[in-house]
Design a protein around this nucleic acid. Structure first.
Lengths: 122, 122
DNA sequence: GTCAAAATACGACGTTCCTCGTACAATGAT
DNA sequence: ATCATTGTACGAGGAACGTCGTATTTTGAC
């Protein structure tokens, strides 16, 4: 197998993840990213944490592969940024970028989600 | 044919359209509805009009059937309300309901769309 | 009654989406 | 080295989505 070869090869910049530039973030994509219940949940947790959170600490009722998928959608659409920290992968909401592009949007979405929670299960 | 029969049959309440109650409107559905370029365009036009607009006056680069589809999605997800006015169908943004459920959300989305337009094609 | 305008219904097509399981890779600790 | 932890890759299945064209319905005007 090429197993060990691959492992040592990517030492210098090891495991880099692609993030869209701020200028490449599109409103439709952000809305789409936020429109999924699992992803909205992730974003809410990240917003509440006001910092980085690993994938594992955000518990979701879906499989590991599905989690990976949702985090990737969020990252590729510019909603979060991800970096590897040891064996874990940390996630951060791209709050500054989003606020600059779409002032107040994230804040309103988060508030709306809260209000809906109160309205429905409270 | 049963043509004439059908026609005369529905005179009293003729052609009623189903709209979700305000309490049935879900954030995820609204975000999903707004995430499509055609639908976002419709919503922006309706917001700018501050009143009702027929389907025809909002020009979209898609077929008639596709238009019908998008208007239906917006209506079924609680974003717009529709009524028949003669041979036309009028559309109105459900601004009051949306503002009550999700304060400031629509406003921020509209503003975000504007800013993005300036940023991209200006 | 006929006609044109506006919109729907229906079926279809290809794409994207959300989900999963299994196998694999990368890292840090032992 | 071995191992446990964490996340990825790679299909794959099934549902939902966006689009279309054609036939049809509804309505108002002639």
């Amino acid at each position: 197998m090429t197993t060990t070869t691959t492992t040592s090869a990517d030492r210098p910049g090891a495991r880099v993840l692609d993030h869209p530039d701020r200028s490449a973030i599109r409103l439709e994509d952000v809305l789409h990213a936020l429109a999924d219940p699992m992803r909205l949940r992730i974003v809410r947790r990240l917003a509440a944490a006001q910092g980085e959170l690993s994938c594992t600490v955000i518990e979701l009722p879906v499989s590991k592969s599905t989690c990976t998928h949702h985090y990737r959608v969020l990252r590729e659409h510019g909603v979060i940024s991800q970096i590897y920290r040891g064996t874990a992968k940390m996630n951060v909401l791209r709050r500054a970028d989003l606020d600059e592009l779409f002032p107040g949007l994230i804040e309103r979405v988060l508030k709306a989600a809260e209000l809906q929670d109160e309205r429905l299960d409270a």
